[in-house]
Design a protein around this nucleic acid. Structure first.
Length: 901
RNA sequence: AGGCACGUAGCUCAGGGGGAGAGCGCUACCUUGACACGGUAGAGGUCCGGGGUUCAAAUCCCCGCGUGCCUACCA
């Protein structure tokens, strides 16, 4: 395989399939339940089993994979626990839609048969997203894949439910909850999405039972008036000088209802009189309880008006609203209508307007659990990154309300509670009880409701690892190292996992929570199917390759800022992958016969300055990558690698070694010449450097772009096995070489100076010209002398003279680098006017800088109060600029003279 | 109504008290034996506005303006 030539362009598709299959077959993703290695664990945020991979998943899982591959290469025992979520409402909706196509509904099928069909559906389509994650390169331990409805996880759910019930943290009762009239189930507060809605405020007159006049109330929902059982005013409101016991007539219903007094009523809103509908508004419900008001339900579970709605029975709630308005107009009781913007809750699954609905539901008493979860973060047991989310977490936890966990659907974990039909006793137990422990009766019926899907997700960090059994995996991997997730499920999931983890495991579920941003479209809009602006990750992978896609996501993953993604950006990073590919292709061509004869120290004495420089740079990149990944700064790590590979390794190093590699007799270089002793030739030293740099760069890059790095690694001589098993590079003081960096800075600076003149003076790239560098410093002259040929090759010179400052060469253009003046000889091709313009422009730039500097140095306070090193720095800078300006001006004079003559 | 972000080159953004940066785009030149998915060079900025702290502010503080998002039972 090694001797194969690489193609000119990188073709990802075949490569990706091949290597993913290999990794899986070799078991490289597998974690060990028992190991001497240090553990590192992540549980995947389980995607909905009905889900299709979208950008959010792609981003989220790319980051997790980067961390897992990174830690694995560092020698950790890595567990990335995969799985899917049964997504109760969503999945039930999907299967019901399937049934509807056949003209059936679930009630015809019956509960048992319906559940069977859902499982069947899951078997057929549920694996889709898992395969898509594989295309992304996700290195999950697939053998451990879990599903929230698995037997083990279901047992965990029942265990938790029973325990919380016994602890008094689960209760059942009649309350106003959020009801979706389409899904026909209760929803938790979080499952309701509020949206601003342009509605109306209707002012309705409720006439006094006795006498003239009446009270005008304002409402946005006139249809609920049919269930009004009182009108409330603030006792301090002087406008309502009304006796206790006064009653008004409820319009359209001809029902007497009392006027009550309650401080809750805001005197500044509307008319200061509030209609009270205890059955259809949570506040009214509370007020109703306090004042012992009747509760009249007028809207049914399907969103239609019920038998209590009199003539409006059977109408849809929104139709009824219109009808009521009409009827009130007829009666002359509609005082006025104002446009009014208010927020309206919608079902997060189907967008139907949610109805506050009185019903008997199960709740978790969250406060005690939340207090623990708050304390844990305060103690630092769990760290939220970036920190700004910590405040959001506290705010929500501090204001948390009880969690409605019962759902009136069939697909999910059925609540483990039974009612005795003989005595009404409620029994909560792990398994179906044989008889009632109240009366001994045996006619028990199980609670029909199932639990909120998030109830089972909340257990995910330990239920997936074998809890409630005393599993090895649990001992090794709990608490998990980090949770990587989007802020959109901070409350839904993260907060609840914290509460459950602390209560049942007596420890937090994760040490770190890394909250990443959202992926948006190129204009910053949220991607959504209805907007039609989604980019399908699989389409992107097919078009640009997984590595390009992953690198893009990582490169844009700056903390706290959303990612605006467009195909153009991914294409840009495909170019990077291709660049790496071609640099490797070049390197491998030369490395075909290379056999590494020892470690760095074997070669170190014989390395050229460029060799030493690239090692030093590599070391600094490794430092940056390690630090950045430890801090979840994926964009910084990706940026450092991009910069290194493209602009240091490719742009400079490869160009510098080309002559060394192509020259069959490289002895002519005469550089860094102490290396006779070990007999390593400059050519060999360069090969070693090339090999070692590429080798380490690949390893640094692998977590980000696993496929292309594995493919190149496979062709790299002198390495064994998968790059996944290679060690992640460590930093080494052996590589650090400030001297080589200084020298290379000088060489690159001079080279750029020459290139700059060439470019600006339109010297054809193919034309070799002569150059002169005048340096006052003898050491610099010596250094440049040693590397004369390197500069000539990089700057396309046919001659390079290095001399002390002296006579200025005629017919040349100039540039200044540090103390050194560069002349590019342009015999016959110099355009004196152009050169004058160029110099003037350059001088103008310097003048601008000098202006700022002299202002600073003219400031007494600055001289007196700024730290001396800062002042010295500014002085030195001034000197440098003045010097540079002088040099340019001198040359300008010469050019002017020549141009004139 | 409260809270949190963000506003830096044409676009997307990094940076975060003492020299304004990157990628893409743009302009000019170049089929050099890894790569035109490339190379070299270049143009381009009141760092949203206004105050304050400081010797020094794009950077810290305050006030605006603008843009996103989240939370909330005022009908």
């Amino acid at each position: 395989m090694n001797s194969e030539k690489l193609d000119k362009g990188y073709e990802p598709n075949e490569v990706e399939k091949r290597w993913y299959g290999y990794w899986e077959a070799e078991g490289l993703f597998e974690a060990a339940d028992v190991s001497t290695k240090q553990p590192f664990s992540i549980v995947i945020p389980p995607p909905n089993v009905t889900g299709v991979l979208h950008m959010g998943h792609a981003h989220n899982n790319t980051l997790q994979d980067i961390l897992c591959r990174y830690r694995r290469m560092q020698g950790y025992n890595v567990l990335w626990m995969p799985g899917t979520d049964h997504a109760g409402i969503a999945t039930q909706n999907v299967v019901e839609k399937e049934l509807a196509k056949e003209g059936k509904n679930r009630h015809e099928l019956g509960r048992k048969e319906f559940i069977k069909q859902v499982w069947q559906w899951r078997k057929e389509y549920g694996g889709l997203i898992i395969n898509q994650l594989k295309r992304l390169g996700a290195s999950c331990d697939w053998g451990r894949e879990r599903f929230t409805m698995d037997e083990g996880l279901s047992r965990a759910v029942r265990t938790v439910f029973v325990k919380l019930y016994e602890d008094g943290l689960i209760y059942r009762g009649n309350y106003i909850i959020n009801w979706c009239p389409r899904c026909l189930t209760a929803l938790s507060d979080l499952e309701v999405e509020h949206e601003d809605h342009n509605g109306h405020l209707y002012y309705i007159k409720y006439p006094f039972e006795k006498g003239k006049g009446g009270v005008v109330v304002a409402t946005t929902r006139p249809e609920t008036m049919l269930g009004d059982t009182a009108v409330a005013v603030n006792p301090d409101d002087e406008r309502y000088d009304i006796e206790e016991g006064t009653t008004v007539m409820l319009p359209l219903m001809n029902r007497k209802i009392p006027i009550i007094f309650d401080k809750y009523v805001d005197t500044r809103f509307g008319t200061g009189a509030l209609k009270i509908t205890p059955a259809h508004d949570p506040n009214d419900f509370e007020i109703g309880k306090e004042h012992n008001l009747d509760v009249v339900k007028v809207i049914g579970s399907d969103g239609r008006m019920n038998e209590n709605a009199g003539p409006f029975q059977g109408q849809d709630r929104f139709v009824c609203r219109e009808k009521i308005i009409e009827a009130l107009k007829v009666e002359g009781l509609l005082e006025r209508v104002e446009p009014y913007q208010h927020s309206v809750g919608h079902c997060y699954r189907c967008r139907t307007t949610v109805e506050p609905y009185l019903s008997k539901q199960w709740f978790v008493k969250v406060k005690p659990l939340a207090d623990e979860a708050i304390a844990a973060v305060k103690r630092g047991d769990t760290r939220i990154v970036p920190d700004m989310w910590t405040k959001t977490y506290f705010d929500w936890m501090n204001n948390i309300r009880d969690w409605c966990i019962s759902r009136q659907i069939w697909w999910g974990h059925r609540i483990p509670a039974w009612a005795c039909e003989d005595c009404g006793e409620l029994i909560v137990a792990m398994d179906s009880p044989a008889q009632c422990h109240g009366c001994g009766g045996s006619t028990l019926s199980q609670e029909p409701d199932v639990l909120d899907t998030w109830f089972s997700s909340a257990l995910w960090p330990f239920s997936t690892m074998g809890w409630p059994d005393d599993a090895d995996a649990l001992k090794t991997f709990y608490p998990t190292s980090v949770l990587v997730t989007g802020f959109d499920i901070l409350f839904f999931w993260v907060a609840r996992m914290m509460m459950m983890g602390l209560h049942f495991m007596k420890d937090v579920p994760f040490r770190d929570v890394y909250i990443h941003a959202l992926v948006r479209d190129a204009d910053g809009k949220k991607m959504s199917k209805s907007k039609g602006n989604v980019i399908d990750p699989i389409y992107v992978i097919d078009k640009f390759g997984t590595d390009a896609f992953r690198f893009t996501l990582a490169a844009f993953a700056a903390q706290g800022r959303d990612i605006k993604l467009s195909e153009d950006r991914i294409e840009g990073y495909r170019h990077f992958i291709n660049k790496l590919w071609n640099a490797s292709r070049f390197s491998l061509m030369h490395l075909e016969d290379f056999r590494c004869a020892g470690s760095f120290s074997h070669y170190s004495k014989d390395l050229s300055v460029a060799d030493r420089w690239i090692f030093s740079r590599l070391n600094s990149v490794a430092e940056n990558v390690l630090r950045a990944l430890d801090e979840y700064k994926f964009n910084e790590a990706a940026g450092a690698l991009y910069q290194f590979v493209w602009h240091e390794f490719c742009d400079w190093y490869l160009e510098i070694v080309k002559p060394v590699l192509y020259d069959e007799k490289p002895s002519g270089r005469g550089e860094s010449g102490s290396g006779q002793a070990s007999g390593v030739s400059p050519h060999e030293a360069a090969l070693f450097t090339l090999w070692s740099t590429l080798n380490q760069a690949l390893r640094l890059l692998h977590p980000f772009i696993p496929f292309v790095t594995e493919e190149i690694w496979d062709k790299l001589p002198g390495v064994e096995g998968s790059i996944m098993k290679a060690q992640f590079p460590v930093t080494s003081s052996d590589y650090r070489d400030p001297e080589a960096e200084d020298t290379m800075d000088l060489i690159m600076g001079i080279t750029s100076g020459i290139r700059n003149v060439r470019g600006e003076m339109n010297v054809p790239p193919a034309l070799f010209v002569g150059g002169v560098v005048q340096c006052p410093d003898e050491g610099v002259r010596e250094t440049l002398g040693e590397h004369r040929e390197m500069i000539m090759s990089l700057a396309k010179l046919d001659d390079l003279e290095i001399a002390p400052p002296g006579k200025r060469p005629a017919s040349s253009a100039t540039s200044v680098y540090g103390d050194n003046t560069i002349f590019v000889s342009l015999k016959d091709i110099i355009d004196f006017t152009a050169e004058q313009e160029r110099l003037n422009k350059e001088i103008a730039k310097i003048d601008k800088e000098l202006k700022g500097i002299s202002k600073k140095l003219g400031n007494e306070a600055f001289l007196a109060k700024a730290p001396p090193e800062v002042v010295d720095g500014v002085r030195a800078k001034e000197e440098r600029f003045v010097e540079k300006k002088n040099k340019l001006e001198k040359h300008l004079a010469v050019v002017k003279g020549l141009g004139a003559g």
